[in-house]
Amino acid sequence: MLTYRNRLHLMAGLGAATLFGAKAQAASNYPRRPIELIVPYAPGGGTDLLARAFAEAAKPHLEKAIGVVNRTGGAGAVGLSEIMAARPDGYKLGLGTVELTMLPHMGLVSFKAEDFLPVARLNADPAAVTVKADAPWKTLQEYLDYAKANPGKVRVGNSGTGAIWHLSTEALADKAGVKFNSIPYDGAAPAVTALLGGHIEAVGVSPAEVSAQVAAGQLRILGVMADERLAAFPDVPTFKESGTDISVGTWRGIFVQKRAPDDVVEILREAARKTANEQSFKDTLKKLNLNWAYLDGPEFSEQVKAQNATFATLMKRIGLAR
């Protein structure tokens, strides 16, 4: 004869099995409707262009289309917060950037890096210093010498306070012993537009985000914060070559709410792997001068964890942590 406690255990077990079965069925039918891919920055920047390239290349690998939605503000905080707070069903993804390991240390957001589940890294790019083609500085050293002689006079645009391109400028200032006037925008594209309009003297964004203007002869890249010169810009020196030992950059990848069902995550991982390896996707990134840098979820998770710890230390040292 079943005791009252045993009956409760049996009923709980049956309820859990029913719930598990419902989740498994939901996952096996995933996706049943279109998927949103949230981009935390303005249209036209590197993150936005990457997201749209991914959404297009993913069409053969998911039964429903991915729609790109831009949610700007707060150096990515608005869009990243929406991803973190999303229903954990896999229908709202995020094109996350390195900022999700940085913003929490500034006390500007309610989320932590651990609130996101990495699905796949798609891209990684270094920071660069870019000026107008008619700027008086022809070399990185001339630029730094001027900044040192004129503290706070050089206005450098970035993609938002606390964003990686802001941090790259502050890290350079710390390393070179100079002071810049950092100007935040809602993404790299508005910062580049401001530079073209003469409202600022430089931008600290990635080479890909200025490549079209460089090719048109409007802008000039003085240096890249990478360990080696970039294949797309072989004539641009690294900062290390120019005597300033600094290497800073971003990564971009697909994230999902951390409580998303395992089966859904596996479907997304497989789709992301196939999409990242589509030749059309690689070709598009090459045209955009975005560096293809695929990593599967588990390996990507390790990088996110390591950089979260690194930025916690660095941002405290340069006075950006709260």
Rank of each mutant, 00 (worst) to 15 (best):
S280T: 09
G198E: 05
E36Q: 14
A16D: 01
R322T: 15
D125N: 12
I38S: 05
G67Q: 15
R71F: 13
A86G: 04
V131Y: 03
E82W: 05
L19P: 05
Q25L: 15
V156Y: 06
A26L: 11
L172T: 01
A58H: 01
Q213M: 03
A212W: 07
A194K: 04
M315H: 10
L93I: 00
Y294C: 07
T275W: 02
F180Q: 00
T47G: 08
I38K: 01
K59P: 09
T313C: 07
P88D: 12
D145C: 09
P184I: 13
G160M: 03
P237H: 00
V256L: 01
T161P: 06
A127P: 00
S168P: 00
L195A: 03
W137V: 03
T97R: 04
T250C: 12
N277I: 00
G74F: 04
L140V: 03
D296M: 13
D227P: 13
S280R: 01
V39H: 04
R52N: 08
E266Q: 14
G297Q: 07
G46L: 03
A171K: 07
K59N: 11
T3V: 12
A208D: 01
I35G: 02
T18N: 08
S247P: 10
S206I: 06
A149Q: 09
A215T: 14
D134G: 06
A171I: 02
L49V: 12
N123F: 08
V265T: 14
L320G: 05
K138F: 02
L37E: 14
L268C: 05
K59V: 07
E278W: 05
S242D: 11
S211N: 09
L80M: 09
A42F: 13
A42V: 07
P34C: 07
L172W: 05
K287P: 10
D125T: 13
D174N: 14
S182W: 01
T130W: 10
H9C: 15
L122Y: 00
A312L: 08
A306L: 11
G44R: 05
A189G: 05
R229L: 01
F116R: 09
G204M: 04
M84P: 10
T244P: 06
V265P: 02
A306E: 14
A276W: 00
N123V: 10
D283W: 04
T169D: 05
L140C: 04
E114M: 11
P43V: 06
A276T: 02
T313P: 04
E170S: 09
G243I: 01
K153N: 08
R259L: 10
F111D: 05
P298R: 04
E299R: 00
I246T: 12
R32Q: 15
T72I: 15
V98E: 08
N70T: 12
A85G: 12
V109F: 00
R32S: 15
A293L: 08
